[in-house]
Measured scan of single mutants.
Amino acid sequence: DHDVVPEDKFQETLHLKEKEGCPQAFHALLSWLLTQDSTAILDFWRVLFKDYNLERYGRLQPILDSFPKDVDLSQPRKGRKPPAVPKALVPPPRLPTKRKASEEARAAAPAALTPRGTASPGSQLKAKPPKKPESSAEQQRLPLGNGIQTMSASVQRAVAMSSGDVPGARGAVEGILIQQVFESGGSKKCIQVGGEFYTPSKFEDSGSGKNKARSSSGPKPLVRAKGAQGAAPGGGEARLGQQGSVPAPLALPSDPQLHQKNEDECAVCRDGGELICCDGCPRAFHLACLSPPLREIPSGTWRCSSCLQATVQEVQPRAEEPRPQEPPVETPLPPGLRSAGEEVRGPPGEPLAGMDTTLVYKHLPAPPSAAPLPGLDSSALHPLLCVGPEGQQNLAPGARCGVCGDGTDVLRCTHCAAAFHWRCHFPAGTSRPGTGLRCRSCSGDVTPAPVEGVLAPSPARLAPGPAKDDTASHEPALHRDDLESLLSEHTFDGILQWAIQSMARPAAPFPS
């Protein structure tokens, strides 16, 4: 592969990997390779389809078979030569091979799209000592099968071997295949498990690692696999990028399955594409389908809103127990993405979901129960707010008499603000006073009005108090039968009158 990737590009890729991570280095090298001529790309395919690569990765054979028959990708048995050289000459001794072996032994695996480039050397060096003999053996194999790289107009793939297949390693990572398949204008990513390549439709969760975000852009890794992070704060999961590491605690105790298979379609829109997988259930989501939507993949363990709600429900009964003089119970939860139609709101002032922060849900004790107040519409209280300059209440639009249902020339009671006709409430011909108009209920007259088809109010509507207090003497005590009587009149003013009279009014101040 030294004929494909020059030394300066190799060093530039290593520097970019240390600065921005393996995914960015892979993407940059792939983009550079696509700008080369067809001879360089053909050399790339020839390096990929060597015999030892085909033996190690069985899924490469179907890719090789898909090439046109007129494309010669065979390799000479006596060494490598550029395709432009007409004579089959043995190339001179390859010093770059020693360079590659020494550099890969030092860096474990470079971040390139060629056999030198995919593992994360920093994480491997940190986690190597417990498994040094086995990992050293794996390093000797890295130059042979560490990076199976493929690129063409139909298929483009980048393979990364790992030393996680050490025997006896619980939940060992089998390997990473960062794979971009450009077929019919689409893009897919796969993962390699035990020599087999699994596409998103049959993606397997190998051991402790999972394909957290099938994305090839942005600074985030394709698999949430930063070796420096180790395990999740809650004892979460091992990262795919942690090559040759000792077994780590796999999943939280509440995880239903340690080796679950995540779905390959969004649980909201039932469509495929780039998904984020939940650590607590097999569901996966688009970032845009979450509520609120996320802009980037959160670091650490992530769970959907259903799993978060289940966790909150487990903690909430203990938080609601009476604990005198104790601060509110704080339950730190990872930043969760909410699927459509589901929402768990945190306290005000918290950062938005999706940031690399930890939301704190506070379970406050329930407030003391209070008697429910009568629910009145805002339009129902409008007549009470229509007060004239002299303190006389004006008529609201649409006000109707509670007896006849007519809204023409209605009066407004100064005591309960109900609309009424003087002739309907006082049919006996009582003279109307000039000021202080009161309806039949507030004036103490319980004589029913002779209106055909309208039920008369119940005599129990009024329960006047002592006459010594004029204001308190007109406080009506309405009961269920009074409400039914008012409802039978089918008037809004009657219902409003009952609601206003049912509310307690402050006692009249004593004259000074």
Rank of each mutant, 00 (worst) to 15 (best):
P476K: 05
Y361Q: 00
F420Q: 01
L294M: 14
A370M: 14
S431V: 06
F420P: 03
P389E: 07
T357C: 04
C266I: 05
F285V: 08
G434S: 11
P253G: 11
F510P: 12
A399V: 08
L381R: 07
V360C: 11
C269K: 03
A463R: 08
V246W: 14
G346D: 13
E475K: 02
L437P: 08
T358A: 11
A267F: 15
L411P: 02
C442W: 01
E265V: 08
T301N: 08
P448G: 07
F285S: 13
S441K: 04
F420T: 02
V403R: 05
T414N: 13
A477C: 13
L395K: 07
S379T: 10
I495Q: 03
W422P: 14
H425A: 10
A248D: 06
C439T: 01
E484H: 02
A428D: 06
S306E: 08
I276T: 09
L294P: 06
D493W: 00
D482W: 01
A499P: 01
P328G: 13
P298R: 14
Q392F: 12
T491V: 03
Q257I: 04
A472L: 08
F426I: 04
D406Q: 09
G444C: 09
V268D: 06
R318C: 13
E321V: 11
F420S: 02
G398S: 09
D264H: 08
V360L: 13
P334F: 12
A288F: 11
E321H: 11
P464H: 08
P293R: 12
Q392R: 09
Q313I: 10
G272I: 00
P365D: 05
V454Y: 12
W302N: 06
S378Q: 02
G244E: 14
L373N: 12
C416A: 00
R480F: 12
L376R: 07
A456T: 14
N394D: 11
P324Y: 14
P368A: 05
V246I: 06
R318L: 10
Q325I: 11
Q313V: 04
G494S: 06
P459R: 07
C386H: 05
A456Y: 13
T447N: 07
G241V: 11
L352I: 05
V315E: 09
L496I: 12
N262T: 12
L385F: 14
R461C: 08
P459K: 05
R400G: 07
V451S: 08
E274G: 12
A456W: 08
P317K: 09
P509F: 09
Q313H: 14
T447H: 12
P298D: 13
S379C: 10
Q392I: 11
E350D: 09
Q325H: 11
E265S: 07
A428Y: 12
V315T: 10
P433T: 12
T430D: 15
P293N: 07
D481G: 03
E484D: 13
T358R: 12
P372H: 10
G336Y: 05
A467W: 14
S458C: 13
V268M: 08
P464N: 11
H363V: 13
S441L: 02
E489T: 00
V403F: 11
D279E: 09
P332A: 11
P253D: 04
P327A: 08
C269P: 03
E274V: 13
G429R: 10
G388K: 05
C401Y: 02
A417C: 07
A460H: 15
S369D: 08
V403L: 10
P450V: 10
R400C: 09
